[in-house]
Simulated assay, not measured.
Amino acid sequence: MIETSQLQTLVAVTRAKSFSKAAEVLGVTQSAISQSIKNLESKLEVKIFKRSGKMVVLTAEGEKLYALGTQFLQKMEDTLVEIQGDKDTMQGKVTIGTLTGIGKTWLAKEIVWHAKENPDLKLSVRMGHQEDLIADFDANKLDILIMPEDDVPLHGEKEFFLEEKSTLVFPKEMKDQFFNKKLTLELLETIPTILFEQNDVLFLKWCRSKFKTHPKKLNVRFTVNSHGHMLQAVNEGLGIAVVPNHVLNRSFFKDKIMTLGDEFEVPSGKLYIVYHKESENLVRIKNTIDRLLSHRDTFKI
């Protein structure tokens, strides 16, 4: 494998047309220059320089390597300057990953404003499933993650973002049943219910929060592992359900079904912002995280 120092020596000798003058430019001995070129020619098994009077000039093979070397060294220098400049400015790339519901409800809209305010910043939002997002974060394809507490990668730095909430939803035709009676656990056990799965975690958390215990039985009418389809079922009058607020807030059915108001919203889990330890001093990363934290109150979750 050719070393960067060998390409630097090649370029210096070519421009100086002399081993001794190249040594002065690079601040090394002439013997070091000679040895570097000798090692390079040995690796490639071709002659790179030839004598032309008192000067050394490139062979045909050397010309090709010189063209490659100058391009590579210039690209490396440009990249290093860009990296060093990006460290303390709002320039460069920031890629954020989160769950689809959070991305569609709030994050993507917020990042649009962040991009508008920072025209030199290249922002990207990736929405998907936990396992895919974590794999990309581990592979350094994502700079920032917004994830539920249980899915936060162990090696990332984390910052508490906000607490998700869930709420009970019901068809409009059940309005009198809910608002003219005090909702009790016994009443809840009789009402047709739509669950995410048989052991619906959000539904059980909601019950624990409001009644301090689980219902002994449920009148399960429909089960589907999709909050969007649960809302559709509620709209069709199949029963009640407990869904995340951020799903309800972006749903087509938001204004077609009912809730019991803020009093009946309950915490359902914490969200964290996660980032790489080595990037915490990059201004573009720090300012993006600060932006998300300062605007989290606009996220109706």
Score class of each variant (00 low, 15 high):
Ser31Val: 09
Gly62Ser: 11
Phe252Met: 06
Val274Ile: 12
Met127Ala: 04
Met76Cys: 01
Glu159Met: 11
Val56Asp: 01
Val25Asn: 07
Ile2Leu: 14
Phe178Trp: 01
Arg250Met: 07
Pro119Ile: 12
Val81Ser: 09
Asp138His: 08
Lys270Gln: 14
Asp120Leu: 11
Gln232Arg: 14
Thr9Trp: 02
Gln74Pro: 02
Lys256His: 06
Lys270Ile: 09
Ile96Asn: 02
Ile33Val: 13
Glu77Asp: 13
Gly103Cys: 08
Ala135Leu: 12
Ser5Gly: 00
Ala135Thr: 12
Lys116Glu: 09
Phe19Ala: 07
Ala241Leu: 05
Met76Leu: 13
Leu271Glu: 09
Val25Phe: 12
Asn245His: 10
Lys217Glu: 03
Asn219Phe: 14
Arg126Thr: 08
Pro153Val: 03
Gln198Cys: 02
Gln84Phe: 06
Val25Met: 11
Ile301Asn: 08
Ala139Phe: 00
Glu263Thr: 12
Phe161Trp: 11
His229Trp: 14
Leu65Trp: 07
Asp88Glu: 06
Asp150Pro: 04
Lys181Ser: 01
Trp206His: 07
Thr223Trp: 06
Glu41Pro: 11
Lys43Val: 13
Glu24Arg: 15
Lys286Pro: 08
Glu45Thr: 00
Phe252Asp: 05
Leu292Tyr: 01
Val283Pro: 00
Glu131Thr: 15
Leu107Phe: 01
Asn225Leu: 04
Asp255Leu: 10
Ser34Asp: 03
Phe203Gln: 00
Gly269Pro: 08
Leu248Pro: 15
Thr79Phe: 09
Ala12Thr: 11
Lys254Phe: 07
Ser124Val: 06
Ile111Cys: 06
Lys286Asp: 11
Ser226Tyr: 15
Ser31Arg: 08
Ser42Met: 00
Asp151Lys: 12
Met258Ile: 03
Phe222Lys: 08
Lys87Glu: 01
Glu110Phe: 13
Asp143Thr: 13
Leu185Asp: 01
Thr29Cys: 05
Val56Pro: 00
Trp206Pro: 04
Gln198Asn: 11
Asp138Pro: 04
Glu197Arg: 15
Leu121Asp: 02
Gln177Tyr: 15
Val11Met: 05
Phe196Tyr: 12
Asp120Ala: 05
Val94Ser: 04
Arg291Ser: 14
Arg250Gln: 03
Val56Glu: 00
Glu149His: 15
Lys217Val: 06
Gln74Ile: 03
Asp86His: 10
Ile273Tyr: 04
Lys254Trp: 02
Glu45Cys: 00
Pro267Val: 04
Lys54His: 09
Leu123Tyr: 10
Asp138Glu: 10
Asp255Gly: 13
Leu271His: 11
